[in-house]
Simulated assay, not measured.
Amino acid sequence: MAGHSGTPELKFTHESLPQRVIFDSYAAAGHVAAEVDRLGARRPMLISTGTTIEVQGAVRHTEVVMHVPVEVAERARARAAAEAVDVLVAVGGGSTTGLAKAVALTTGLPIIAVPTTYAGSEATAVWGLTDGGGKTTGTDPRVLPRVVVYDAGLTLSLPVPLSVASGLNALAHCVDSMWAPRADPINRAFALEGARALNTGLPTVFDAPSDLEGRENALYGAHLAAVAFASAGSGLHHKICHVLGGLFNLPHAPTHAVLLPYVTALNEFAAPALAAAFGTPTAVEGLLSLQKRLDAPRSLRELGLNETDLPAAVDGVLPAVPAGNPAPIDRPRLAELLHRAWEGTDPR
């Protein structure tokens, strides 16, 4: 109609990543074998620290290190070249998928990812490498796994504390996707449904670790979270966590779990719909309630960060703050946020 400008929120450009996703509990091994054949591969490299599943004729590579140090990536790349590998099969958490991505980044080899945690790296084209205390991240279509095989049965052995931390890491993908640089109505819809599923599944995982339904809900939510995050991009929360991980070698998932309510308290005014995923008046209340319910880590101090490290953390994070963050960020505000997260005080 002439003169009608439309709804501002419904003017956007959204890009969905090309990926085959299989969700089938207790069936990963068969699906992996079929997908290796479908890709026409003959020499797989199985990247895994355990023996969760076997891949016939695979070269096994077990050196997996958190945050993917450059030298670890180089050794994996050299092994893939020496063994004439033609497909990478990553079975494990975010560090395992991250190593496969580092190999794919320079070789172009396809990845079949079989996640055993809720990290979500398998659904993104984001890679990360650490070198000399700094973490470099980027986006490249070569690192997006061609196939993801989700088997909730493989998560049953994941200890409850790690399940909680990993699940809250996935929830961080949902929350950050509400206001990240490329946030749009489609990835917000994925993020809200992902947050709802995680809020439903994680308490069941905590109370009944062998209950498959809880694990399936958590894995489903983690996938939606990762898809939303892949589209929306990295917001303030992830920028902070990447800097802290690279500078101080803090554990990835617990760091996300600790910081999430603090960044949410800062930015929630820009995404009031997020509260509905938790069934609480505000999303911060829902997150704090879930943290308490899951006995999750509550402070950076308990993760090993020293108070004397905080000024260096502020120096590292400030240049990485996204320009479009809903709440303006300056040095004093960032320093206050990090100090409160270090103490574990109420983010409200």
Score class of each variant (00 low, 15 high):
residue 2 A to L: 06
residue 4 H to D: 14
residue 4 H to W: 14
residue 17 L to M: 11
residue 27 A to T: 03
residue 30 G to I: 05
residue 31 H to K: 14
residue 32 V to G: 05
residue 38 R to H: 12
residue 40 G to Q: 07
residue 44 P to A: 13
residue 47 I to E: 03
residue 50 G to Q: 08
residue 51 T to K: 11
residue 52 T to Y: 06
residue 52 T to E: 14
residue 52 T to G: 13
residue 53 I to F: 08
residue 57 G to N: 02
residue 59 V to D: 04
residue 60 R to F: 04
residue 63 E to I: 14
residue 64 V to N: 07
residue 66 M to A: 13
residue 72 V to F: 06
residue 74 E to T: 12
residue 75 R to E: 06
residue 76 A to P: 03
residue 76 A to V: 02
residue 81 A to C: 03
residue 83 E to M: 11
residue 84 A to E: 15
residue 84 A to Q: 14
residue 88 L to Q: 08
residue 94 G to M: 07
residue 96 T to M: 00
residue 98 G to I: 06
residue 99 L to S: 14
residue 99 L to C: 11
residue 99 L to H: 10
residue 102 A to E: 03
residue 103 V to L: 03
residue 105 L to Y: 02
residue 105 L to Q: 08
residue 106 T to M: 09
residue 112 I to F: 05
residue 113 A to W: 07
residue 124 T to F: 04
residue 125 A to H: 15
residue 125 A to Q: 13
residue 131 D to G: 05
residue 132 G to H: 06
residue 135 K to Q: 04
residue 137 T to M: 06
residue 147 V to M: 06
residue 148 V to P: 00
residue 148 V to F: 02
residue 149 V to L: 10
residue 149 V to Y: 08
residue 149 V to P: 04
residue 151 D to I: 09
residue 155 T to A: 15
residue 157 S to M: 02
residue 157 S to T: 15
residue 159 P to Q: 00
residue 160 V to W: 04
residue 160 V to C: 11
residue 160 V to Y: 06
residue 163 S to W: 01
residue 164 V to I: 05
residue 165 A to M: 02
residue 167 G to A: 04
residue 168 L to S: 05
residue 171 L to V: 04
residue 172 A to H: 05
residue 174 C to G: 07
residue 175 V to F: 10
residue 178 M to Y: 07
residue 181 P to C: 03
residue 182 R to E: 08
residue 182 R to P: 00
residue 183 A to H: 09
residue 189 A to N: 02
residue 190 F to M: 15
residue 194 G to Q: 12
residue 195 A to K: 13
residue 206 F to E: 08
residue 206 F to A: 09
residue 208 A to C: 10
residue 212 L to W: 11
residue 213 E to P: 00
residue 218 A to L: 04
residue 219 L to F: 01
residue 220 Y to Q: 12
residue 221 G to E: 03
residue 225 A to D: 01
residue 226 A to V: 01
residue 227 V to T: 15
residue 242 H to R: 13
residue 244 L to Q: 12
residue 246 G to W: 06
residue 250 L to Q: 06
residue 254 P to W: 00
residue 258 V to F: 01
residue 265 A to L: 05
residue 267 N to G: 06
residue 272 P to F: 13
residue 276 A to M: 02
residue 278 F to M: 13
residue 280 T to G: 00
residue 280 T to R: 15
residue 285 E to W: 00
residue 287 L to G: 12
residue 288 L to I: 09
residue 292 K to M: 10
residue 294 L to K: 05
residue 296 A to R: 00
residue 298 R to M: 09
residue 300 L to S: 05
residue 301 R to S: 13
residue 301 R to P: 00
residue 302 E to Y: 01
residue 306 N to H: 12
residue 310 L to I: 15
residue 317 V to S: 11
residue 318 L to G: 11
residue 318 L to E: 13
residue 318 L to P: 08
residue 323 A to Y: 04
residue 323 A to L: 07
residue 325 N to D: 14
residue 327 A to M: 13
residue 335 A to Q: 02
residue 337 L to V: 05
residue 339 H to L: 15
residue 342 W to N: 03
residue 344 G to V: 12
residue 344 G to E: 08
residue 345 T to M: 06
residue 346 D to L: 06
residue 347 P to S: 09
residue 347 P to L: 11
